[in-house]
Write a protein that binds this DNA or RNA. Sequence first.
DNA 1: ATTTACTAACCGGACGGTCGGTAGAATCTC
DNA 2: GAGATTCTACCGACCGTCCGGTTAGTAAAT
Lengths: 205, 205
Amino acid sequence: MCAKKSAVAPENDRTIDIYTKAAEIFHEQGFDATSMSNIAAAVDLTKAGLYYYIESKEDLLYAIMSYAMERLETMVIEPSQAFDDPEERLKSIIARHARLLTEGNKAITILTDEIEGLKPKHRKQILDRKRVYMDFVRGTLEALKSAGKLRDVDTTTATFCLFGALLWLPRWYRTDGPLNHDQIVDEITKIMTGGVLRHACEDQK
Amino acid sequence: MCAKKSAVAPENDRTIDIYTKAAEIFHEQGFDATSMSNIAAAVDLTKAGLYYYIESKEDLLYAIMSYAMERLETMVIEPSQAFDDPEERLKSIIARHARLLTEGNKAITILTDEIEGLKPKHRKQILDRKRVYMDFVRGTLEALKSAGKLRDVDTTTATFCLFGALLWLPRWYRTDGPLNHDQIVDEITKIMTGGVLRHACEDQK
DNA sequence: ATTTACTAACCGGACGGTCGGTAGAATCTC
DNA sequence: GAGATTCTACCGACCGTCCGGTTAGTAAAT
């Protein structure tokens, strides 16, 4: 009898390979439209062989999303917390999140698109972790407001607009498009912090 | 033998009822996760009875999305075209699209979330109509640029940011939340046109 | 001798969709 | 206006397929 498989973190190369490929296929076809045989074939296994590594389809999804949340926490939240200045912090969040979304790791995208595929218990866990992130961003906007650096906008709505613009990124961004990675990050930061319309105080070019 | 059923427009009350209910259920559970029996039960029919009104599950989805596109065209694009001033036009687009997304018609949401459920032929048709909308919005930003009223941002990126913020709306907006309809429209317009950060030229409060 | 890393074959169930039929309303025939 | 016919709006039962998941077994490594 083998020890209970854990969905907490990838344990070895093969498992990581499965998670990565599964994330890509889920991203392309959607969770429901993807069969376990699809995934098995993509990693050169039979379906039964795949089940040697995972517990269930739902568990696989949860593993992917847990991994994605961890990436978000270590690559976006933690480094951004280092900034005391809320303006710097906000820009760090936008830039780092945008980078994560465009650098090819599909797990991050699945995080927002396939939450309905989780069982209630797992869903709650992921949503709780997302909420911490959401509160972190809104807190940053609140700090900006306290510092008199925020326009007169509702921080909750602003947070959601920010997330909307960011989370839409992987749906349109193409690595081979006209704008490279840094340019995209730059544009989004500019647009979300300063809007699209020219301000009265800006010089005409 | 009966005439071929059309997916172009709802023909009678019962069909409209089916489309409306189906849109709600697709929105709640997702297209793949919804069975035809689910929909049938929701409109007090058996599955066989439901198939008297529709041709296939995919056809039902296409009918809903065609209807949604039509709404978008008549309630957002056409009225906004009336504005010659690009700034007014942009604000009209944002306000009208936001209104459509929050006023309870789930079809509009399905338009962006379930495109993968369509057969290639139907998908292309919907995407082509979406592209016209997309071009209209980007065109408006280009017009703003020509008028010297746009900040130095990439119009394509700005268009996608705008869509992202808008399309994210139905995922978080609650009718019974603290902000009413008009306030939300107001906030989003403010945020997307002017960004979140206070401009140098604005007075401290 | 035991464990690891698998596979071929299989299972119960759900799904999209179909088919034969039918109650009742509407229409036609004389 | 009575009877025959046709049409509308469904339903119960069923079909083939595919899916998530299991089981019994095995070849190679340890």
